[in-house]
Amino acid sequence: MSKSVQIKNISKNYGTYQAAKNISFDINDNEFFTLLGPSGCGKTTLLRMIAGFETASSGTIKLHGRDIHQLPAHKRRVNTVFQNYALFPHMTLEQNIDFGLEMCKWDKKKRKERVKEMLELVHMEEFSKRYPSQLSGGQQQRIALARALAPEPEVLLLDEPLSALDLKLRQAMRDELLTLQRKTGITFIFVTHDQEEALAMSDRICVLAGGSIQQLDTPINIYENPSNKFVADFIGETNFFPVDVIDINEKTISIQTPLGIDLTIPNLAKTTISVGNNVTMSLRPEKIYINKPENGPELAGKVASRNYMGGYTHYSIALDNGQSLKVSKRNSVSNDVSYEIQQPVKLSFSPESVRVLSE
Rank of each mutant, 00 (worst) to 15 (best):
Q195P: 05
K12C: 04
E197A: 11
A172C: 01
A146F: 03
V155C: 09
A164P: 00
E352G: 01
S353Q: 11
M91W: 03
E224D: 14
A86R: 06
T16S: 13
S334W: 06
S227V: 05
S202C: 11
E237T: 15
T187W: 10
E126P: 03
K302N: 14
L121A: 08
E237H: 13
N335C: 04
T192I: 10
G185H: 08
M49N: 00
D336N: 13
P89D: 09
T238E: 01
K109Y: 01
K346T: 15
D159L: 06
I213G: 01
I317T: 13
D29K: 10
E117L: 00
V191R: 04
G296P: 10
D233Y: 04
C104W: 02
I220C: 02
N278R: 15
S350A: 07
M309W: 01
P242K: 14
L35C: 11
E102C: 12
G15I: 09
V191A: 10
Q95G: 02
V78F: 05
H193Y: 05
K109E: 14
A150S: 09
R130Q: 14
S24I: 10
E176M: 10
L46P: 00
S316E: 15
Q70F: 06
R306V: 15
M281C: 06
K21I: 09
S133G: 02
